[in-house]
Each structure stands twice: as structure tokens, then as C-alpha cells.
Simulated scan of single mutants.
Amino acid sequence: MSLPGLTILTKRADFVAASRARRVSRPAFTVQMRKSERTEGIRVGFTCSKKVGNAVARNRAKRRLREAARLVLAKQGKSGCDYVLIGRRDTTASRPFDQLCHDLETALKDLHAT
């Protein structure tokens, strides 16, 4: 799967490295961002633990996060950065999509400000 203008993170090492970086939490998700010296462009990863629900619920939450990232990160993400979006139980799948996108926009502003 590919998102226009974004590269998908697939290696565990990239997720682990992002887990030690800056993070911002919003009602529907948490965003982790780390500056990556070895890559150009915007890389993004998505994860939802079993706490989010069964496979259907996790997949739905990740689909919503992918679409929000496609719309927001492609425009407001910084080149050379890795982003990981972590879904939350109930709220990621049920939050209105426009609020989900707004949450991602404000999270990116907070991450880029520091």
C-alpha cells in the first residue's frame, strides 16, 4: 500500500526509534515524531494494539488514521521526519472524521513548534 507523497514505515526498528522521540496525544490518537537523518521525504507508520479491539476494530481505526495522514501529513509534514500514529480504544474509530483531521493538524503544529 502506498500513500501519495508518503512512505510507509514497515520495520520494527523504525517504530522503536520513534517510540523514544517526541510525542503528542490527542483524544483519538497519539503521534510520535522523530527526525531521521538517513531519509528524505515523509515516512509514516500506523499501529493499534489489541486494546483497541478485535481485528475488525483495529483495521477500521488504522484505515481512518491512514486517510487522515494522506490528507494532512502530505501537506503539513516535514521532509526528513518519521511519524507514527497510534490508535486509541473506541475514540479512533468513532470520532468524527473532520475532528480526527483537525486533531492531527494541531498535533503536528505542536510537534513542529518544539
Rank of each mutant, 00 (worst) to 15 (best):
M1S: 15
C101G: 06
F46D: 00
C48K: 11
C101H: 04
K109Y: 04
L73H: 02
D90Y: 06
S2R: 13
Q99W: 05
R22W: 10
T47M: 08
G41T: 08
P96K: 10
M1G: 15
A17Q: 11
A13V: 13
A93Q: 11
T7K: 11
A61D: 14
K78L: 13
R34Q: 12
L73C: 05
L71R: 12
G87K: 13
V52E: 08
L6W: 03
V44A: 02
A18Q: 03
L6A: 06
R58C: 03
V24Y: 12
G80F: 03
N54R: 10
F97S: 11
R60C: 04
L100S: 08
D82Q: 01
V52S: 09
R23L: 03
T30Q: 09
R23T: 09
A13Q: 12
T91L: 14
L85E: 01
N54S: 05
A18G: 07
C81P: 06
D98I: 00
D103V: 01
F97D: 10
L111K: 12
K109L: 12
E37N: 08
P4A: 14
G80Y: 04
T10L: 03
V52T: 12
R26Q: 15
V44I: 09
L111R: 10
V24W: 13
I86P: 02
V16R: 09
T30H: 09
R63E: 09
D90S: 08
L111D: 09
P27D: 05
R66H: 15
A107V: 01
G87E: 11
R63A: 08
R60G: 03
F46M: 03
N54T: 05
A61K: 12
R20I: 04
C101R: 14
A61N: 11
L3I: 15
A107E: 09
D82K: 01
A69N: 04
L9M: 00
T39M: 01
C81G: 06
A28Q: 04
K11I: 00
Q99C: 07
A55D: 11
G5W: 02
I86W: 03
F97P: 07
P96S: 06
Q99L: 12
D110W: 01
Q99H: 14
S19L: 05
M1A: 14
F15Y: 13
A74G: 14
R89F: 05
L65P: 06
L6D: 11
D110C: 07
D110I: 07
D110Q: 14
G41H: 09
S25D: 13
R88Q: 12
T91Y: 01
K35P: 00
F15L: 04
D14H: 12
K51F: 06
L85G: 04
K109S: 14
T47K: 02
S36L: 06
V16M: 03
R64Q: 10
R12K: 10
A28P: 02
V84N: 07
Q32P: 01
V56F: 04
R58N: 02
R70G: 07
A57S: 14
R64N: 05
R60S: 06
R20M: 00
K78S: 07
T114I: 11
I86D: 08
S2W: 00
T30C: 05
A113D: 14
A113Q: 15
A68P: 10
G41A: 06
E67N: 13
R70W: 04
F97M: 08
H112I: 12
V16F: 02
D103I: 01
P27F: 02
F29G: 01
D14W: 02
T92Q: 07
C101Q: 14
R43L: 05
N59E: 13
V16C: 01
A55C: 13
